[in-house]
Design a binder for these strands. Structure first.
Lengths: 371, 371
DNA sequence: CAAACCTCCGAAACCGGTTTCGGCAAGGCT
DNA sequence: AGCCTTGCCGAAACCGGTTTCGGAGGTTTG
């Protein structure tokens, strides 16, 4: 085939003109493939002059090694795996775009790529994860939404595949992770509310199977202690991850004999449910009942009043996770690859000094609901 | 190495126990690699009995071909490429999770994977796209957010790389696409408003560089015509893609001597800006001014009153795009790979019969603003 | 019964890289 | 001068698959 011949239509599977291979570079310079390979990969037994000559020629000829051709010998495909669970309509949504942006950014800085897959259930996630591992589609995996006991970890550990978790776990042996200090956020939220004069402060946790949930409850209790407020188990509401559940949890807490005048939520979305509950009970968020939550979903800004929350920088999380994972794949010990980052408070209007005492609030609620 | 030997620590780059290769399967059966390969890939010159024997053995031994090992000879990595532009804070966000879910679902049904990358600018997108093409990280690409004249198309066409667009384009030669009939939606929105009794109906288009924008304006004009309303160029507002821009566009339209009592928006997010404008002008959406938009973002449901909109099923879009692209990669002609799907109307409270005539609305507005 | 054809599979080349091994030449050491 | 290093690179094997080529054996045809 002469140079300039170009496949027409779909004759050639892909890539119009023939690729320039390592053999082309070698022939062009009158050296062997092996020399080119070693020069380009920084082996020590190549003369500096030769290395320069080769890398310049490679550059000029536009030589790009095929990562999958390299992979067959090296066992590295230069790709990071990410298996997302997309179940209920809106779970991972706001989080996702920035997170992916962060991950891909860090990855492409090292000239790696991301292989992404989704599943609808935990079981589905494990199955796709296994498949990707079997077919070696990625050199390592990022595990979002870490559970207290996470079967994904068992799978990867058994196959000896590098991974990093977004979130801590119950059994940390051999695990690298990046996590946000949700416990600090919840402690700060609680002391903040206490400093406003609240004495009955409730907490609505997230999903029990998640590690973060336990941590945030811990932070809440620390906050109470720091403020000198006795912990009341009744003020731990039922777990809530959705608006609907948050609505119910809020109603349940307000129905207590001595209701809270402030509620901390482990999850923004649940906190938005409190707005609904408040409206139904003719209560005003940020006056009759204060709210501080965690996540930083955009909807919080559009609520009325705006939701005060501890926002996580998910773009940065993605970036760090990717860089740490690459280090892990390159051999770093997992114990050295653990990072914690703070959440940042976004003050809006949902947390204010209490307008009523708990007792007055209870009386007020009695007049509203006619049960 | 005896069977049972397992690499400890990070000795072996990945995959604890040695992989079972095609040679293992062949040896186990006393045939050659080539026979196994042909049997598994459905070549016609393998006896049915042999094929069965081989595929059963492969199954039992847990043999999984490495796609990158196959790729080196076949030129196919069994991966779909997706380069996302994540620029302004919240552009692609709600769209993304479901879209990716759809794409990955369809891809993994065929045992393909998705290689994803992001960039912040159009230029960045083109650069990453070129890089992925050069390194053959994917066999074909999905191009979201098609522009009227799209340079990504030129890049891929030049390299003869298969692709499919989410959205139509000005020059369709050689292009496969999937798109939502936004023009139909806008026509329906307009006739619907007209049927409510609105006579002054405005339209706020999306970004001018996008194909859809032009199409939706066309639909709007068709709707006017069908309702027997004369087109008034003054009622085409400035393009708006964000809440902020939608706010401004709404104010501009309402400041007209004969203001519209209804506005159609090419984009939900812009329509949400109208709520702000209305509040500032003491107007009630769904009474003083009606609104119908397009996209189906979740925030629309939480607006008060809820935003009536034409929602696109982005999960389905992802699914179809992936399946069509795979067909394209397998050699189907692009002309046969063009699909249009309808948007579905979600009726909420933002579109109602007008409470005031345009003249009365204008008078009302004069009393509000003291300029 | 030989020639011509199929059917089915083995042998070997091939894809584009990496890595091992060994050898040549120059330099250092006694 | 002879020997031993050391630096540098070529030759060839290798990775895990796919694909071409050809040939053995059985079947059909003339």
């Amino acid at each position: 085939m002469r140079t300039g011949d170009v496949a027409v239509g779909a004759t050639r599977p892909m890539g119009g003109r023939t690729r320039v291979t390592i053999a082309d570079v070698a022939a062009h310079l009158g050296v062997t493939k092996s020399t080119v390979s070693r020069a380009l990969n920084g082996y020590p037994d190549i003369a500096e002059a030769t290395r320069l000559r080769i890398s310049r020629a490679a550059e000029r000829l536009g030589y790009r090694p095929l990562s999958h051709a390299q992979a067959i010998r090296t066992g590295r495909v230069r790709s990071l795996g990410l298996v997302l669970q997309i179940d209920d309509e809106d779970s991972a949504r706001p989080f996702l775009a920035n997170f992916i942006a962060g991950v891909t950014q860090a990855a492409s800085d090292e000239n790696w790529t991301i292989t992404i897959a989704t599943a609808e259930s935990e079981k589905g996630v494990r199955e796709t994860l296994s498949r990707l591992v079997d077919e070696h589609k990625a050199d390592g995996f990022i595990l979002p939404r870490t559970l207290l006991r996470d079967k994904r970890v068992e799978i990867l550990r058994a196959q000896n595949v590098p991974f990093i978790m977004f979130g801590r776990t119950a059994d940390p042996t051999g695990c690298a992770w990046y996590d946000i200090k949700g416990e600090d956020a919840m402690r700060a939220a609680t002391t903040r509310l206490a400093s406003f004069g609240h004495t009955r402060i409730a907490h609505v946790p997230g999903g029990e199977e998640y590690t973060y949930s336990r941590l945030r409850i811990g932070g809440y209790r620390e906050g109470l202690e720091a403020a000198g407020i006795a912990f009341d188990p009744a003020l731990i509401g039922p777990p809530a991850l959705t608006r609907q559940a948050g609505d119910m949890a809020t109603r349940a807490l307000l129905a207590l004999p001595e209701p809270p005048t402030a509620i901390t939520f482990a999850v923004d979305r649940a906190a938005l449910g409190a707005y609904r509950a408040a409206q139904a009970l003719s209560l005003r968020i940020g006056a009759d009942v204060s709210v501080i939550a965690y996540d930083g979903v955009p909807e919080g800004a559009y609520a009325d009043p705006g939701l005060t929350t501890f926002a996580v920088n998910s773009r940065q999380a993605g970036e760090r996770l990717a860089t740490l994972l690459i280090k892990r794949i390159r051999g770093a010990a997992p114990e050295e690859l653990r990072e914690l980052a703070p959440a940042t408070l976004i003050e809006r209007g949902s947390d204010r000094p209490p307008r009523l005492t708990p007792a007055a609030l209870a009386r007020h609620l009695k007049t509203q609901t006619n049960i």
